[in-house]
Amino acid sequence: MSPRWNPNPDVRTGRHVVYNLRVHLVFVTKYRRKAMTDAMLTRCEEIMREVCESFEAELKEFNGEEDHVHLLVHYPPKVQLSKLVNSLKGVSARLLRKEFDTHVRRYLWGGHFWSGSYFAGSCGGAPLTVVRQYIDNQQHPEG
């Protein structure tokens, strides 16, 4: 790295890449059932933090309500986002159903915990208008 460069802890480096990838994920319980308790949310965060670490990603923020959770994940470019999501949902569903079985069975059945769908939104960095303007202002070489 150039000595002129001020290190930003959010900008990570790999062997051939410099990156800052963040995604906002939202997972909703099956049928939007209000199945989550405070203890379950706390455990869900622990589980999801461990899953992220196994992908060399970092769970920056986590919170939720009775029927959904929000995650902010900082992840490397080698991670396929759909695989990360499948692992986050699969591992958390399995462990939450196992550890909170009696409670979960009152709300959810058939082996399901999360809805099959999810929200993923890229976030962080400059607003799109600034990025567009930066790209538009690049100087083409003469000739």
Rank of each mutant, 00 (worst) to 15 (best):
S2D: 15
S2G: 02
P3N: 08
W5Q: 09
N6V: 15
P7M: 06
P7I: 13
P9F: 00
P9V: 00
P9Y: 00
V11R: 06
T13D: 07
T13P: 00
G14M: 09
H16A: 11
H16G: 04
V18W: 06
Y19L: 07
N20H: 06
L21D: 07
L21S: 08
V23C: 11
V23Y: 05
V23I: 14
V23F: 05
H24Q: 05
H24K: 02
L25V: 14
V26E: 02
V26M: 05
V28Y: 00
T29C: 11
K30I: 10
Y31E: 10
Y31K: 05
Y31V: 02
R32M: 03
R32E: 04
R33W: 01
K34V: 05
A35V: 14
D38V: 12
L41P: 01
R43C: 07
R43D: 13
C44Q: 02
C44K: 00
E46T: 12
E46W: 06
M48T: 05
M48V: 03
R49A: 10
C52V: 04
E53R: 14
F55G: 04
F55A: 06
E56I: 05
E56L: 13
E56R: 15
L59T: 04
K60Q: 11
E61L: 15
E61W: 07
E61N: 08
E61R: 13
F62Q: 02
F62N: 03
N63C: 07
G64V: 09
E65N: 04
E65D: 14
E66I: 01
E66W: 04
D67W: 12
V69F: 01
V69T: 14
V69S: 02
V73Y: 01
H74V: 05
H74S: 15
P76K: 08
P77H: 02
P77A: 01
K78I: 08
V79Y: 06
S82T: 14
S82V: 15
V85G: 04
N86L: 09
S87W: 00
L88N: 01
K89S: 04
V91T: 08
S92R: 07
S92K: 10
A93E: 09
A93R: 09
R94G: 03
R94F: 14
L96F: 06
R97W: 14
K98Y: 09
E99M: 08
F100H: 06
V104D: 04
Y107Q: 05
L108R: 02
W109T: 10
G110T: 05
G111N: 10
H112Y: 14
F113N: 02
W114L: 09
S115W: 00
G116W: 05
G116N: 08
S117M: 06
S117Y: 04
F119M: 12
A120Q: 09
A120W: 05
A120L: 12
G121F: 06
G121W: 00
G124P: 03
V131G: 01
V131C: 07
R132V: 03
Q133M: 13
Q133K: 15
Q133I: 02
Y134C: 02
Y134P: 00
I135R: 02
I135F: 13
D136T: 13
D136E: 15
D136W: 11
D136L: 14
N137P: 00
Q138R: 15
Q139N: 02
G143M: 09
G143N: 12
